[in-house]
């Protein structure tokens, strides 16, 4: 079984975001980066499948972005991926999901993966497009928002999460793609021996120009904070004062303290 997992590196979302010079995305200075949360579930599921299938299988992790994304790639290798593809792209943040999906499909079409895992969405863009677009470009079956997964005899059974806690179960033959939702599994922490082992694994670097053949279909024209709705009161300062202030407010504004 040939397996691919696609990961994106995203900034720590507790950071403060400032617009960049062209006002189209955030300024990257001073931001810390990590693996997109949804993609951690994707890597874990791919590694579990890789382990189930044993030596006959092979798991590649792929990420598009500048040099910093190699950090996220190394984490995926330490979690158990066999090899990595780093598609080098300094301008990744200006690409639309259509271009990202096109780049991955150009690589995947050649390598004929049986199963592809992606995250349900990226935390910074949150478009929830790349996975399903990639499946469509490759002409493979696809289930999105998956919280349960199994694969036996080339048949995938996927449990999709719907609204209100209801789930929908579906089946499809490989080749197939699933987009992974929070809670699909509990992603493992890379152990020190596995981090050491990962250092010897191959990271193939490819320039994006070799794979990108498509123009973007949409452009970002502005990046800004939401308009403040006001209303809310900000309580800052010393803890003891904050407690007193909050207690006074709760007594005045709610009926729960007597």
């Amino acid at each position: 079984m040939k397996i691919l997992v696609c990961i994106k590196q995203v900034p720590d979302l507790e950071s403060r975001f400032k617009p960049n010079a062209s006002n189209t995305w955030f300024d990257e200075a001073d931001l810390a980066y990590r693996m997109n949360e949804y993609d951690e579930y994707a890597v874990e599921q791919a590694v579990q499948l890789r382990e189930e299938c044993g030596d006959s299988s092979d798991l590649t992790v792929l990420s598009i972005g500048p040099d910093r994304v190699v950090e996220a790639i190394k984490k995926a290798l330490a979690m158990g991926c066999d090899r990595a593809v780093h598609i080098q792209d300094q301008a990744v943040s200006s690409r639309d999901p259509w271009q990202i999906a096109s780049i991955i499909s150009a690589y995947a079409r050649e390598h004929k993966f049986d199963l592809i895992f992606t995250g349900m969405q990226s935390q910074d863009r949150g478009s929830a497009q790349v996975g399903a677009m990639l499946a469509e470009l490759l002409g493979v079956s696809c289930a999105t928002t998956v919280v349960g997964f199994s694969c036996k005899d080339n048949v995938v059974t996927a449990k999709r999460e719907l609204e209100g806690g209801v789930k929908g179960v579906m089946r499809m033959k490989t080749p197939a793609l699933v987009t992974c939702q929070l809670g699909l599994n509990i992603p493992r922490y890379p152990t020190l021996p596995n981090i050491m082992k990962a250092k010897k694994k191959e990271i193939i670097a490819l320039p994006v120009a070799d794979l990108l053949k498509e123009e973007s279909l949409a452009k970002t024209t502005s990046f800004h904070p939401p308009a403040k709705k006001g209303g809310g009161l900000l309580v800052e300062g010393d803890i003891a004062d904050q407690v007193d202030k909050v207690l006074a407010l709760l007594k005045e504004k709610t009926a729960v303290l007597r």
Binding site: K219, T221, S222, F223, H224, P225, P226
Partner: peptide, 17 residues
């Protein structure tokens, strides 16, 4: 207008198709 960065920021996206 769409949200991004986990709802902390907004973008304006303009389609060209």
């Amino acid at each position: 207008e769409v949200g991004c960065c986990n709802g902390k920021m907004r973008r304006i996206v303009k389609p060209s198709t």
